[in-house]
Design a protein around this nucleic acid. Structure first.
Length: 423
RNA sequence: GGAGGGGUGGCCGAGUGGUUUAAGGCGGCGGUCUUGAAAACCGCUGUACCGCAAGGUACCGGGGGUUCGAAUCCCUCCCCCUCCGCCA
């Protein structure tokens, strides 16, 4: 959520920066509602001040045994006006909140202006793309042939966009989760947490999935529970409605969770294989920082995620998302894209963002500055470290051999009970 | 699922209609004293919103109601604890 005071003070700037996302926001409407709201607040609070004063007076006169009937009559009207204005205030505040919750974050000034993913800017590349002496196969072909992935039977269990891992495939997925968590906890200083995989609506509003993107989420019928689309939601909301002591910042958390997404609007996209599933595993990195250090922390967080690919020796590149490709709540995002030989291109495997105080304002997460002072909103950041299913895809494809076998990256072998090769 | 007990400030805890601008204590900050520290004593010590300011308003788990006036009375929901049942 944007700060209404910023919108009030610099409406043209807000409108201009939002327009680079390719959306049009009616700032004028926000300002009009805000002004009406403040007017009503002023009026009703004046009346309440009067009510409080008169009520005190009534108490005093009654104790003295004096007559108060004229004052009571006077207060009848005041009470009525207060009731009306309170209702009006509630309506206006609801209206303003509704508008604000549907306005995306302002892109950071360093974000390249552009329309869509074609305008994203590559910032670095790492690793050597292997030169295959044969035609590299798709990961689903490799996985099915090795008997470690079974999409057909997964369809019986749930439907399209689900996977059944078997044998060393299941072990590979589990090994990757452990490998990533160990790296981030033991070497990068993150605290591991294991949150609920379902959250209530308030959390979804806090991180920005709701109210705008209801159609992307799985909801539990009859309950105020949603399946988490990313660990970002439960982990960021851990500190909802709290004031964190400034000495404790930055807070670094990592979590493994499955992620559940409807993938509405992705019909026909990546229909085969593990790339786009209704359920997938992910290890997430989350940071809470102050406003001075959040962009340094974004660089570090991105490097922490990249480190997974370096250890696995998988070639990748990092791109800065342009304004038109930026997510709703993000001020700046780096995507990490891993090389997939079967597609001959880089595919997203991690998305690392700084949300500045946008989520903190929605979820009401503040910190007390060192040495005291008024609480301020934290900056929140998160990034995949990494999407596990897509990491399996990258390993199967980049480490495949002509005979259909797959070599296990060395860093992963201790997590695989020493297995060096599948097939 | 059944029965009972609870939810008050950073923490503990008093408060059953108006002298409550929420007692008192602990913790924290500042001061006096001291070579320094401790102790003692004194003072300060929540959040949000409206307002240029002075100041005002709201908040005692959430929402609604009664009343001139609600932490206090009524309704409703949520959460926690204890016991019973069921269960991984």
């Amino acid at each position: 959520m944007l700060d209404i005071r910023v919108i009030r003070e610099r409406p043209e700037e807000v409108e201009r920066r939002l327009s680079t996302r390719g959306i049009k926001v009616d700032i004028g409407k926000v300002l009009r509602v805000d002004e009406q709201r403040r007017r009503v607040i002023k009026d009703v609070e004046e009346l309440k001040a009067k009510r409080n004063a008169v009520s005190k007076e009534i108490g005093r006169l009654k104790r003295e045994g004096r007559d108060v009937s004229s004052l009571l009559r006077e207060m009848d009207e005041v009470a009525e006006r207060i009731k009306d204005l309170d209702e009006r205030r509630k309506t206006l505040e609801g209206e303003l909140e509704g508008l604000l919750l549907n306005i995306p974050n302002l892109p950071h000034p360093t974000v390249p202006v552009g329309e869509d993913e074609r305008d994203n800017v590559e910032v670095r590349r790492w690793g050597e793309i292997r030169d295959f002496p044969f035609e590299p196969r798709d990961h689903w072909e490799i996985g099915e042939a090795l008997g470690i992935l079974d999409f057909e039977r997964a369809t019986k269990l749930a439907g399209a966009r689900f996977a059944l891992y078997k044998g060393l495939g299941a072990l590979l997925e589990r090994a990757l989760i452990n490998f990533m968590l160990d790296l981030h906890t033991k070497e990068h200083g993150y605290l591991e947490v294991l949150p609920p995989f379902m959250v209530n609506r308030r959390c979804m509003v806090g991180t920005g999935q709701l109210p705008k993107f209801e159609e992307d989420l799985f909801k539990i019928e009859g309950w105020d529970f949603y399946l988490v689309p990313t660990a970002e939601v439960p982990v960021t909301n851990i500190y909802q409605d709290e004031i964190i002591e400034g000495e404790r910042l930055p807070l670094l958390l990592t979590a493994y969770t499955p992620c559940f997404r409807k993938e509405a609007g992705a019909y026909g996209k990546d229909t085969r294989g593990l790339i786009r599933q209704h359920q997938f595993n992910k290890v997430e990195l989350v940071k809470f920082t102050d406003e001075e250090t959040s962009y340094d922390e974004l660089e570090r967080l991105t490097r922490d995620a990249e480190e997974v690919l370096r250890r696995l020796n998988l070639p990748y590149r990092v791109v800065t998302l342009c304004t038109g490709d930026l997510g709703f709540s993000a001020a700046k995002t780096y995507d990490i894209e891993v090389w997939l030989p079967s597609q001959g291109r880089y595919r997203e495997i991690s998305s690392c963002s700084n949300f500045e105080d946008y989520q903190a304002r929605r979820a009401n997460i503040r910190y007390r500055p060192k040495g005291g002072g008024k609480p301020r909103f934290v900056h929140t950041l998160n990034g995949s470290g990494l999407a596990v299913g897509r990491t399996v895809v990258a390993i199967l494809e980049n480490y495949q051999e002509e005979d259909g076998s797959v070599t296990i990256p060395e860093a992963l072998r201790p997590y695989m009970g020493g297995v060096e090769r599948i097939g």
